[in-house]
């Protein structure tokens, strides 16, 4: 299966560089690019990408606003992977909050970048789990209402959510809880459904914001 990508960055050099790098992978194809958030919404509507690689700071609608609009339009697809120059905590957290599935540094190794795109598309684990978890834990304002704030979860689901928030992938959770991968997948799906989270990242944010997980 080929993943369809949309590149959004206000610098044409970043876009053209990324395009060449990503297209050299057999399972990735760039279906469009855009220089502003607004343009990204148009191109996304036209090209129906699986994953949008989104810059944060852009003129005429930044990446955070564009992500929020994409999510509002259709919570299932496309997934958004935020690309940043530096690890600017505040921007990153806000883009995750807006609905991005993960983030990657523009300077990361091409293989890591490609890997992050595949992970976001699959949704079976977090991108940069440690970094993401730390970011969410330190920024999510816990409303300290305890697990009660979350919808009713079964004991197993709560276990799974705890491990998801800990950054474990489905395979790792399966090993940890002595379950089959399929069962874990079912639990994760039902957790996401109950939390109304579009993906793991959003589930982790919900877990921290509700106080189910604490920093």
């Amino acid at each position: 299966m080929t993943l369809r990508l949309l590149l959004v960055d206000d610098d044409v050099l970043v876009r053209s560089g990324l395009r060449v790098i990503l297209e050299s992978e057999p399972d990735l194809t760039v279906v469009g690019d855009a220089g502003t958030g607004r343009e990204a919404l148009d191109v996304a509507a036209r090209t129906d990408p699986d994953v949008v690689l989104m810059d944060v700071r852009m003129p005429d609608m930044d990446g955070i606003a564009a992500t929020a609009q994409l999510v509002a339009r259709d919570p299932r697809r496309p997934r958004v992977l935020v690309l940043t120059t530096f690890e600017d905590d505040d921007y990153l957290f806000r883009s995750l909050q807006a609905g991005a599935s993960g983030f990657a540094l523009k300077r990361s190794d091409p293989d890591e970048l490609v890997d992050a795109i595949r992970v976001v598309a699959r949704g079976t684990s977090l991108v940069l789990p440690d970094l993401t978890r730390r970011l969410i834990a330190s920024h999510a304002p816990s409303r300290a209402r305890g697990a009660a704030a979350l919808p009713e979860l079964t004991v197993r689901e709560a276990d799974v959510l705890r491990l998801v928030a800990g950054g474990l992938s489905n395979a790792e959770i399966a090993t940890e809880l002595f379950l089959s991968r399929e069962t874990v997948k079912t639990h994760v799906s039902s957790v996401l459904l109950k939390l109304r989270a579009r993906d793991r990242t959003q589930a982790v944010i919900a877990a921290y914001e509700s106080g189910f997980m604490t920093a």
């Binding site: 610098d11 970043v14 560089g17 395009r19 050299s24 523009k106």
Partner: peptide, 27 residues
């Protein structure tokens, strides 16, 4: 610094990476 040098370096890095790939293409 972030806006100018960081940005210029990022763009240069990506262009360099891409250029290397086009000169040593896969498959």
């Amino acid at each position: 610094l972030h806006d100018t040098i960081g940005h210029a370096l990022t763009a240069s890095l990506l262009q360099a990476t891409a250029a290397r790939r086009t000169l040593t293409p896969a498959g």
